[in-house]
């Protein structure tokens, strides 16, 4: 669905608004580091784009988070550093995680919360797990608060719940493509998140929308004549076939966007499909500009972009 692309875009857009931004990835290699030509991220933060106060650019940093690291951190903070290494090294975390589903998720979310509380960044963008796992990931807090009624896991779960329930602190941006199955999945996910997690949903980001182009309906030969130019042999057919394909795809996309709009009363932010080569900082800037333009056009309630 381009979830990682959208995370990177959102971070870049926020940085252009002067916010210092931290991207947190939780599922290992996401392709984000490659977009910036960096090696895979580690538990330590790396700077992807340095802040430039004169230009009003807040900077983008990134890091990764694993349940093992989060557990170590957590136990250390809870004054249990002595047993923490043994727990991880012996594979007991695996056992524990198996006994209590959601424990990995709550450890990761708990760490995200402590990053938020430390206020080292104005905006934390979490590149969360994909659709199937997203609900159980976010639901882990309420599930565990019930299942484990005492002890450190319980307090961790409660702290995370407080963060998830507060729209001022946390919002979920759902990402989809203007295609049938992704739209269905998104609508499903949105309702389940609302029912089962109660987290506040931001606008839906629709990635990969074909941008408009002039002339897609025009006859190539006539259009060439009008512009006083001539076509090479066979070119008219290729131009017409490609235009037809694009018109077709755009009509299908428009249909899906309408369907999404009817099924889900959330505003949409549309990002263009980029035909250009691989995603890099320049392409991300292009997407960030589109995202900011979309945010400008959002209907009330006004979305705060400034800190």
């Amino acid at each position: 669905m381009g979830k990682t692309t959208v995370s990177a875009t959102l971070a870049r857009a926020a940085a252009h608004q002067g916010l210092s931004t931290l991207i947190v990835e939780v599922e290992g290699k996401s392709g984000l580091s490659a977009m910036y030509g960096e090696p895979a991220f580690s538990y330590d933060e790396v700077t992807l784009a340095a802040a430039d106060p004169d230009a009003g650019f807040g900077g983008v940093r990134a890091r990764t988070l694993t349940p093992d690291d989060a557990l170590l951190d957590y136990l250390e903070n809870a004054g249990m550093s002595r047993i923490s290494r043994r727990l991880v090294a012996s594979g007991a975390l695996d056992m524990v995680a198996t006994a209590v589903p959601g424990i990995r998720d709550i450890l990761v979310l708990g760490k995200v919360r402590s990053i938020e509380q430390a206020r080292s960044a104005d905006l934390v963008v979490l590149d969360a797990p994909a659709a199937g796992h997203a609900i159980s990931f976010l639901q882990s807090a309420s599930g565990l608060a019930d299942a484990v009624r005492l002890g450190p896991i319980n307090s961790q779960a409660k702290d995370v719940l407080a963060m998830l329930d507060d729209p001022e602190r946390c919002q979920v941006l759902l990402v989809t493509l203007p295609e049938e199955t992704p739209v269905n999945e998104l609508v499903d996910t949105a309702y389940q998140l609302e029912d089962r997690v109660g987290v506040s949903l931001g606008p839906v980001v629709v990635n990969g929308c074909y941008p408009e182009l002039p002339g897609l309906d025009a006859d190539p030969a006539a259009a060439a004549a009008e512009a006083d130019t001539s076509l090479r042999r066979g070119e008219a057919a290729a131009l017409a076939a490609a235009a037809e394909f694009r018109r077709d795809r755009m009509a299908l996309q428009a249909e899906q966007l309408t369907r999404l709009n009817d099924a889900l009363p959330l505003p949409q932010l549309r990002l263009p499909y980029l035909f250009d080569a691989e995603l890099g900082p320049n392409q991300l800037d292009e997407l960030a500009a589109a995202l900011l333009a979309g945010i400008e056009d959002l209907p009330a309630p006004h979305v705060e972009v400034e800190p």
Binding site: P214, G215, A224, T229, A238, A242, A243, R246
Partner: peptide, 30 residues
Amino acid sequence: FTDALPESLRARSDTLDGTDIGGLYRNLAD
């Protein structure tokens, strides 16, 4: 749709920018 190079199609579309045929070339280049 074509064996032509994307770069040359893109160049064609740039010189014809703003016209229908420019848009058609741009699309083929894409």
